[in-house]
Design a protein around this nucleic acid. Structure first.
Length: 269
DNA sequence: ATGGTCGCGAGGCGA
C-alpha cells in the first residue's frame, strides 16, 4: 500500500498535473492540501476517471483538504476533535478547512494543512501552536485507546524541525522567520514523543536538497536548491513497522505549472 | 536573463 501527501496549491490550477501524477505513480491514497476551492468547484471527475473515491473539505478559496483513495474511503471526518477555530478582529471564530480524516485500506489517514504562523509575533502563531497541541492530545488519546492503531498524519506541517531542514538557517534567524522557532519545533517534537515516526527522516536523514519538500516560487529557490522540509507523514507505531520505503518526488517541482510543494510518498507492506 | 512567484478573483491578500 502506497500513501502520498501533496500540497498542490490549488487543485483546479493543478488538475492536469495531479491527474498525470496519479496515473504515473500508482498510489493507493493521496492526501491533498490547499485545494483552494469549495465543493461546487472541486474537480470530482478527475478522480472518477481514475477510479478513486474522494472526500473534500473546503468552503472558500482558502485552505481546503481532500483524501483520494482506491482502497476504500470510510468514516470521513472533517476537522479533528476540538480543532481550534480562528477569528481575528472580533470576527466569529471559524474552524478552517485544514483537516480531513478517512479510513482507507485499514489505515486512518489524515490530510492536514497546519496553520502558517505568519510571524513570530503574529496572532496566527499562538493559533498554530494551539492547533498542534490539541491535535497531539487527540493522537495521545487514540494511542491510549488502542496502542496498535494504524494511522498516518500527513500533510503540510509548516515546520522545519531541524536546522538542516532549511537551506540556510542563518537566513531564517536574521530575518526572524517562522517555521524554525523553538516553540514550533517543540510542537512537532511532541508528536514524535507521543510515539509517532517520520519515515522520511529514518530513510533519508539529510541534510541536503534531496529531502526538501517545498521551494518558494520567488528568488529562484528551486534551481538554487534552496528548499525546506516541511511536509511530513507521521505514522503510528503499528503503521511505522510496515514501512518499506519513503521518498520525496522532487521531479514534480520541476517545470512550468508545478506546485511549490513536492509529494511525499510512503510505501507500506 | 539589469529581471526575479503564484493563485484567486478582480484589488489585494495569503503563502
Amino acid at each position: 500500500m502506497k500513501i502520498a501527501t501533496w500540497n498542490v496549491n490549488s487543485l483546479r490550477a493543478r488538475a492536469d498535473r495531479v491527474e498525470a501524477w496519479l496515473e504515473a505513480n500508482d498510489v493507493d491514497v493521496l492526501a491533498i492540501q490547499e485545494t483552494k476551492c469549495k465543493d461546487e468547484n472541486f474537480p470530482w471527475e478527475l478522480f472518477e476517471r481514475l477510479d478513486y473515491e474522494v472526500a473534500h473539505f473546503g468552503f472558500s478559496q482558502w485552505n481546503g483538504v481532500a483524501i483520494a483513495s482506491r482502497v476504500g474511503l470510510d468514516d470521513v471526518q472533517r476537522t479533528f476533535a476540538g480543532q481550534p477555530a480562528f477569528g481575528k478582529g472580533g470576527k466569529d471564530p471559524v474552524q478552517e478547512a485544514r483537516a480531513i480524516g478517512a479510513t482507507c485500506g485499514g489505515v486512518r489517514v489524515w490530510s492536514l494543512y497546519v496553520p502558517n504562523g505568519r510571524g513570530l509575533q503574529d496572532e496566527h502563531m499562538p493559533y498554530k501552536l494551539e492547533w498542534l497541541d490539541v491535535l497531539r492530545q487527540d493522537v495521545e488519546g487514540w494511542l491510549a485507546q488502542d496502542p496498535e492503531a494504524q494511522f498516518a498524519l500527513t500533510g503540510d506541517w509548516n515546520i522545519a524541525p531541524r536546522d538542516e531542514d532549511v537551506w540556510d538557517m542563518q537566513y531564517f534567524l536574521e530575518n526572524n522567520l517562522t517555521h524554525v522557532s523553538a516553540p514550533e519545533r517543540q510542537a512537532f517534537q511532541d508528536f514524535l514523543d507521543a510515539g509517532l515516526t517520520d519515515p522520511m527522516r529514518q530513510r533519508h536523514p539529510g541534510p541536503g536538497p534531496g529531502v526538501y519538500t517545498y521551494w518558494d516560487y520567488t528568488q529562484l529557490r528551486f534551481p538554487k536548491k534552496e528548499g525546506m522540509r516541511i511536509d511530513f507523514q507521521l505514522l503510528s507505531p503499528a503503521l511505522a513497522s510496515r514501512v518499506v520505503d519513503a521518498n520525496v518526488d522532487r521531479e514534480e517541482r520541476k517545470g512550468k505549472g508545478a506546485s511549490d510543494h513536492a509529494p511525499v510518498v510512503v510505501e507500506l507492506s
